[in-house]
Structure formats: structure tokens, C-alpha cells
Nucleic acid binder design. Structure first.
Lengths: 266, 266
DNA sequence: CGAAGAATTGAATTTCCTCAAAGTTCGTGG
DNA sequence: CCACGAACTTTGAGGAAATTCAATTCTTCG
């Protein structure tokens, strides 16, 4: 078995530290208007913790699940595949993300989910999510908005894979993850990114050999270094220039002010 | 000016033929449980018709709009761009689609919208959409689900661009459009696809020169022919094989039965 | 009929891939 | 604490796919 069930119970109880679920709430509330009651309701979602070892799929392509996953720790990749078996990572999901939140509304279509390193997830029944959304329309909208952020990232992914050369693709990914790992979306010049060059290649649509050569080039140019899962950005501006990175798709979001405007207009 | 305003008024009135808005309703109701009242409410959305000439952008990248677009006729491309100016089409939208429905909830992040040929769209104010969703939660969910179908298509787009060679990419696109143009998702072996090889290249992340050579190869192999915007699929099975096409991401959807199950469970 | 846009073809070049072999790192068990 | 093995990284050489640049032909449309 690839997965080891640990505990059942309320989300807040299935982990010793309730803060585990914090990042998601933080991200949501940064972009949506949620009341204390609504936030508490989200925190009260029932969750089932699962440890997944590195390189194990925990949701298969075209699998129809009855739950959505919340990433507690580790790193998750959304994957697709050609018939020939070539793997493509279409998204990274870090702690605080819900990679397949959309499955609550459309049970298939997110592709597979793989743990890129040892990872802990929480499985949250669709029924619970749907109940919550029925009760709190603002939560439903916040969830929808969260899936649209994923879609916006995916859109940049297409551009990255389609229109940039190897070095740019990698630089772009490293810039993006820097912002995403950062609290309040600030730039992290150093962060843990537990991924192999092979997996980076699956994400950037390159072979691991070419990833290696390209990383070497980035390193020699003094832009960035990756060593045993630790990214050190030596020169942010240079990395941004190489990666043709423009963070607005991550940052420019519907903040609470905008939400209030929309709500008052309606 | 690139756009020529035509008429204001209720959606049903801004076009002589109400059936123009039909495809969207059909698609939605095929995947969601909507009452007659809810359908009528959607049909009653106010729309502002706009004619857009070929190759004109009508929503710019990072533009924050106050409306979503509904494609009445023609062909729309969602676009992204690198700083160097390389263009990438990330999605095609055909009559009946709402390319930036998501902007009602997250005003930026869909990229730009371009008319790939002479096209008519309807601009529907976010306020109206949001009012409708507030009144009918089932409509809100149906709209969300529609954006998730786009996301699922986008996911395949990444795989296509990232992991297939030129011929396969083109074959995959032509297969996908065949299904999408078909009513009830049946296979069309002949359909209008008013697009240039240059634009196909922007979609497949290839140069127009290489698109040309690859199409020639597909033609010579007896798989498919494109001539002045008309696709003729000579051998569907062959095209599917070359394009590594598996239609479930378009077809396998949350039908009404599944929706009823989810609703009753909740 | 003429012009503009689109499609087609050729030749040289570049980027990335494939195949193959060493070298490193790190965890595990002796 | 060291030896071993597995996984990961690094490097080399040759080849394939797609690009670039440039020129020509075909279509469409006013």
C-alpha cells in the first residue's frame, strides 16, 4: 500500500497543530471576505490524515474521488500522461493548497496527484465541503476563486512550457515558487523545494539531463543554486530576467476591497 | 477602434435569434441540475453585443473587466505572451463558450482574448452574473463547473505542448475541436475551424513553418486535411492514434445523475 | 486584375534529446 | 563508524526535431 491512514476526526484534531490548516485560511481570507464564523466553519471541516511516501500517487488520473485533498506538509505534483507514458507535471502544490478542491464540483479532470517527497495530506469528504458551501455562499465563492488562482497559474505554465527555452522555464518555476512559498507573497531568496531534477524535468517538459545542464548554466551565471532540495537565489533580478517572470498573476488578486465592491454592487 | 458596439439590451433581445445563447445553456444543463426557472434566468441575462474583427484583441492581458464575454459566433483565442513578444494561445473558445466567465469571481488571470476570425460576442456585466448566482446557488455551481471544464482542457493543453511532437500536437487539437464542435459531443469528421497556420502554431507552440510541414505530413498520411478553415478528418482512428487523444476529459463529466447524488448526500 | 495575406518549400542552424558512463550523496546495516 | 547500495547528479558524444531566414506560390477579396 502506498498510503498509511493515520487518524480520523475533525480537521483541527487530526493534526496536533491546528496551524497546519492555517495557510489555506490565510490565503483564502487574503482574497475573500469571510466572517469569523465562516473561517471557523472551514477550520471545522472533518479531515482524514494520510502519509504518502515520495513518488507515490495518491489520486490516480481519471479517478473519481469522494474527497478533496489538503496538503499539510511536503510537496504534491498534479500529473498528466501521454499514452507512451511520458509524464507531465502540470502544477505544484505546497502546504496549505488544495490540489483537487475542484473535484467537489467536478469529480474528474484534475489529473493525478503524486507526492514528490514524503508528504502528509488531509482527505476532506466532498459531502462536508458541499454542505459548508450550501450554508455559506461566501465560502463557496472563496473556494471557486481559489481554483481560479490554480487555473491562472496553469495558464502561465502553458506559456512557460510552450514559449520559453530550458533556462527560462526553470528560472520561471523557481521565481514562482519563491513567491508562493513566501508568506504574504513576499520574495524568498532561500526556500526548501524538495524536488529532483527528474521531477523538475517533468514539470518543465525537459529531460533530466537537460535540466542538469540548464541548472548548471544558471548556477555559473550566478543566478540561482539548488542543492539537496534547497533553492538559493543569488540574484533575484537576474533570475526574474532570465525567467521572464512577472508576478502579477500570483499577486494581483481580488482583494477584500474589490470583493466588497463587487458585493455592494450586487 | 477595434470593437464596434451594436446593441444594448436583454441578452435574448440583443440577437435576433435567441438560439444564439442556446449552446451554453445546453452545455450547462447537460452537466448540472437546473430548473426551468434557472435556465430562463440565465437566458434573461443582459448582454451587450460587440462585433470584433479578425486578429483584434477585445480583452487585453491583465485587463480588469466589469463583464464576462459570451461567444455568439466566430472563434476566440485566450492568449498569453512572453516579454519577448512570443504569443501563446492557451485555449480556443467556440460559440456558446464564456471564455472569461471566471472574471466574475477573479477579475484578472484569464489572459487576453483575441478574435481569431470575425467574431461576435456578448458582454455580460459581472454585476448581473453575481446577482444571478446569489439568487440561484445551483447556477453559481453550474458556472463554477463550466470554468473547471476549461481548466481540465487547459491541463491537457500543457501535456500536449509539453510532451508531444508537432504532428501529435496538431492532431490532438483537431480531435479535441471535433468533439467540442459536435452537439452532444459526438464526433464531427468535418467542421469549420476558421484559423490560420500561424495561429495554430501559437496554440501548439510551433512556428507556422513547422505547422505547415506537419499538416502536410498528416495530409499525406491520409489522416486529416485543412483547407481554408475547413477541417476534414479522413481517418478518425488514425488521427486519434497520432494525436494520442482520449476524449474523457471532455466527455466524462458530472452528469445530472451524479449531481443529484451529490445533492442528496449533502 | 492587383494587392495583401496565407501557404509552401529549401537550406542552414540551434536546441534539446538519447544513450551511455562516471561521480556524488545519503541512509542503512553491519 | 565505516562500507555498501540505491537514488540522484553530472558529463560526453552523436543525433533528431524544430527553428530561422529567405524566397516563391497560392488564395482571397476588393
Amino acid at each position: 500500500m502506498f498510503a498509511l491512514p493515520l487518524a480520523y476526526g475533525r480537521m483541527a484534531m487530526s493534526c496536533t497543530d491546528q496551524a497546519d490548516f492555517g495557510p489555506f485560511i490565510e490565503r483564502l481570507t487574503a482574497r475573500s471576505v469571510l466572517s469569523e464564523e465562516e473561517k471557523q466553519a472551514i477550520l471545522g471541516l472533518p479531515g482524514h490524515a494520510v502519509h504518502v511516501r515520495a513518488k507515490q500517487d495518491f489520486v490516480h488520473i481519471n479517478e473519481e474521488t469522494a474527497y478533496s485533498c489538503f496538503v499539510v506538509s511536503g510537496l504534491v505534483g498534479r500529473t498528466g500522461q501521454t499514452a507512451a507514458g511520458a509524464r507531465q507535471i502540470t502544477a505544484f502544490h505546497i502546504p496549505g493548497d488544495m490540489p483537487d478542491l475542484s473535484s467537489a464540483v467536478r469529480p474528474v479532470g484534475v489529473g493525478g496527484l503524486t507526492a514528490l517527497c514524503d508528504t502528509v495530506i488531509l482527505r476532506i469528504p466532498h459531502v462536508a465541503i458541499r454542505n459548508l458551501m450550501a450554508r455559506y455562499p461566501a465560502v463557496a465563492e472563496a473556494f471557486w476563486r481559489d481554483t481560479m488562482l490554480d487555473a491562472a497559474i496553469l495558464l502561465q505554465w502553458v506559456i512557460n512550457v510552450g514559449r520559453r527555452d530550458a533556462r527560462s522555464r526553470l528560472a520561471h518555476i523557481l521565481c514562482e515558487m519563491s513567491i508562493r512559498y513566501g508568506r504574504d507573497r513576499e520574495i524568498l531568496t532561500e526556500y526548501d523545494f524538495p524536488i529532483t531534477q527528474e521531477q523538475l524535468g517533468d514539470a518543465a517538459a525537459l529531460t533530466s539531463v537537460h535540466v542538469n545542464r540548464s541548472l548548471k548554466s544558471l548556477r555559473q551565471e550566478g543566478a540561482v543554486t539548488i542543492r539537496s532540495g534547497k533553492v538559493r537565489i543569488a540574484d533575484w533580478d537576474k533570475l526574474v530576467a532570465i525567467g521572464d517572470f512577472e508576478s502579477s498573476y500570483l499577486v494581483a488578486d481580488t482583494g477584500p476591497e474589490r470583493q466588497r465592491r463587487l458585493l455592494s454592487a450586487a
